[in-house]
Amino acid sequence: MWPVIIVLGAIGLIVLVFIGYYNGLVRLRNQVKNAFSQIDVQLKRRHDLIPNLVETAKGYMKHERQTLDSITQARSKAMGAETVGDKSKAETALSGAMSKFFLVVENYPDLKANQNFLALQEELTSTENKIAFARQGYNDQVLFYNNKIQMFPSNIVAGMFSFEEEEFFEIEDKAEKEVPKVSFS
């Protein structure tokens, strides 16, 4: 009698541990997905803010039509991008156009004193930060998830239910790290 109970108990325990690991992996996978969607949310927020910014700046920056147009163009390109590769390229271009714009703004003290503009600038700066932190948070989450998939004993569960490793979010180094060139023409 006793051996049967012990064996049954052991099997029950193993099943419980198994369920625990499985649920843990599912939760982690959902967190990874959630972290990824956070990047999209912030990119959209940036698209929403740009028309206001351009509208506010227009009155003050009569000689910077080019800069403002390049932002508007980059925005519509980013919004129209279909594939992931196109999208990330377009968003990077938009980031470049934005930082160029904020450098040019330094020459317009009147604009910099405008309350409306200051509020917009704060929102945009924060959105840029949020995009960067969302990528960072996503990568942290992926690192943790991938580690769990590779490490014993969760790797057994991961293998059985085909949990696959996620890819890190890499920014195209060249474009992002390059300091935007400013031309005052």
Binding site: N34, G137, Q141
Partner: peptide, 16 residues
């Protein structure tokens, strides 16, 4: 205080 709010949200995103 928009800046405070934004900074808290930034860190909330970074910390997942």
């Amino acid at each position: 205080h928009p800046q405070l709010f934004n900074v808290v949200e930034e860190m909330k995103i970074a910390a997942n």
